[in-house]
Nucleic acid binder design. Structure first.
Lengths: 214, 214, 214, 214
DNA sequence: GATGAATGAGCTTTCATTCAT
DNA sequence: AATGAATGAAAGCTCATTCAT
């Protein structure tokens, strides 16, 4: 940890600068300045600027999957577990200021695989996709299980429901990010986000005996 | 129309290149090449590269508000009108291939206002924000009306519901965009998107006398 | 004159724009705009932008030599004629506002001959040098005659005296040019310039009987 | 000195290229090539191309004022001190080849202050004007003192005499500059220049009890 | 490990010039 | 004669990356 402290300073600075300026407009000079290290050091710890971005993103997906692994063991019903996934997502992003920037960074499109020459970066990209797919599969599987058990509306295609929930979750979190800045006061807080996501998932479930329209 | 054909070629090319590469990686050279014009012509019709981006975005919001103005007169109930807003959104984006790119371009973060020096671009930014606000206000107002009339769940804050619907809509449309490319087959089509949005909105309404779970 | 009116408008505009911005920063767009004609018309009347500059300069030297031809016939003594040359110079430059700009344009260095490819421009350059040489020769000859007649200090090399008189004349005129602009009020006027040049020349002459140190 | 060697190489190269081509035709590529460095390095040491020009000019005026400060303590009479100012000027310019280029660079018109956006360049311009004013004031003051003591012709306005002397000095030096190039052999040398300036100043003085022609 | 001077490919932008109308 | 849309060479400048210290 002492050993890697500079590397972490760079990653921390990179998340913020990339979130604020976007990947291309985030310059190595500014990242280094924000991290309090010399410009050259970035290329000591990372292959190149893209490597920094990929490292930031991979770290996020690894953390989210790792957090999910722990949390999902606590629930058994598909609906509770589905809610838990999004709670994990929100918790990770709302943990601290730095994490909130992550939500913005993830919006940065990943570069086309074929445009990456370096082998090690190719592998890092594959790792990111694998982690990403892991979460996607988790969600889709939970939805399907819920539909088979008759507690989730079977009329909705799993991937469509995933996109609805993911889109809503992302948008609400993005709202939290904007709230960091004075201009963008949005009128709701982290608790509202959590409740709203739970409520949204409930719209697609019939966990209790029966209940209205689903 | 003949007069502005080259200008439109540039805008069309810009939408695609920006959607594929992102604004920052979209070079003027490539936009010009794709439009089949000399690169100098871009700066004849536009102040600079940013002006091209802003022009594309402004055009979109103007078209969407204009389409809404027409469509909303056809409905009276807040719920129907709310659905109509998102139908307009989907229709505009699914109209043709070019439009689909728009959804991607809109994800490009707008530059910080204070970083724009030029007066005319400042004005263009203001115009975009105005059009954007117009849509936002329309949606929020419809939700509030629905809540006052008791047909939309009053427990959800209007701006939260707007973000949920907007996020879902955007994510589903983005899925359609990915479908353009061989790799990303997503397993649902434009009709699915429309139905899903209607269904999602219905989750928050009690159009029928039945109150159900809302 | 009606025939060439547009050509003259362009030359007039060019003098001012070049004086204000310098030759390179004087754009054809601005020259055309100031002249009230279309940009393309410049290339109808002139081979290229350099041709405009050379035409402006050639015109000046032709006018000055032509004015000298007339004026010099009115005087016989070398000293009077020498003074007359500089009076012509001042008069031409102080004739009107446009002329004053000339003084500034003349400061623009002439391009290296070998960098001019076009034959016709090569010829125009030669013509300018010829006109320039004509004036130089006139001055040097007058000084030599004065020295031979014992009325001009023979200790000064003719070309040195020419440079002294030319430098002083140019500097004083340049002061008048600066006076056009609010900031540069210089505290002397056209009459002061004329008197000063006469006085300066007198310093090097013994026109009267004898008189002190010369 | 080792530290700044590249920066000085750039300044040296810039002086020459600007003198030969004029500021506007002096390209950063050529300055870099002549200095033997990469073109990017220019923008490492200087804000932009204009900054290079301003730095060159400021350096000159600082050197001239500094040299004057030392030299002027050696003389007491206004006339001797006035001559000394121009000797300093000549000496600085004739010190080595590089210095001679300075005379040409100084002829480049300074850009209009209001066209400079950058704060630091605004300050550099102010510094140049201050140094310039310092020399101007020195000369004008010496002339006035001489006039009050009755040794300099009181009929000439100080600023007019300054322009006469300055113009002559500049023109003679410019002649020396042309002598660098094969084509322009001018027939006088550095000693001629110095003597001529002394002689010119003497024309306006009555150092000896004799009043002579003044 | 850490620094920052130095590099140069690649970008946006300018603008003289052309040419169809 | 006159226009101005269109061209493209060439410029200034940025910034990821390298490397001697």
């Amino acid at each position: 940890m002492k050993k890697d402290s500079k590397r972490e300073l760079i990653l921390d600075a990179a998340i913020k600068v990339i979130a604020e300026k976007g990947f291309q407009y985030a310059t190595t000079v500014e990242i280094a300045k924000r991290a309090g290290v010399a410009k050259g050091l970035i290329h000591f710890y990372f292959e190149n600027k893209l490597d920094v971005l990929l490292s930031v993103i991979l770290l996020f997906w690894q953390e989210i999957n790792s957090a999910n692994r722990k949390r999902l063991t606590q629930y058994t019903s598909p609906v509770d577990r589905l809610k838990a996934v999004f709670v994990t997502f929100q918790e990770l992003l709302l943990r601290d200021e730095r994490s909130l920037y992550w939500g913005k960074v993830l919006n940065e499109g990943l570069p086309q695989l074929h445009s990456i020459k370096s082998d090690s970066l190719q592998k890092k990209m594959q790792a990111i996709k694998r982690e990403n797919k892991k979460l996607t599969n988790t969600i889709d599987t939970l939805i399907k299980e819920g539909q088979e058990q008759g507690v989730i509306n079977a009329a909705v295609k799993p991937q469509v429901l995933r996109l609805i929930l993911g889109g809503a979750s992302q948008m609400l979190t993005y709202g939290m990010y904007l709230d960091l800045f004075p201009k963008g006061k949005i009128g709701f807080n982290a608790d509202d986000v959590r409740e709203s996501m739970d409520m949204l998932i409930d719209k697609f479930t019939t966990t209790l005996s029966v209940k209205g329209e689903i």
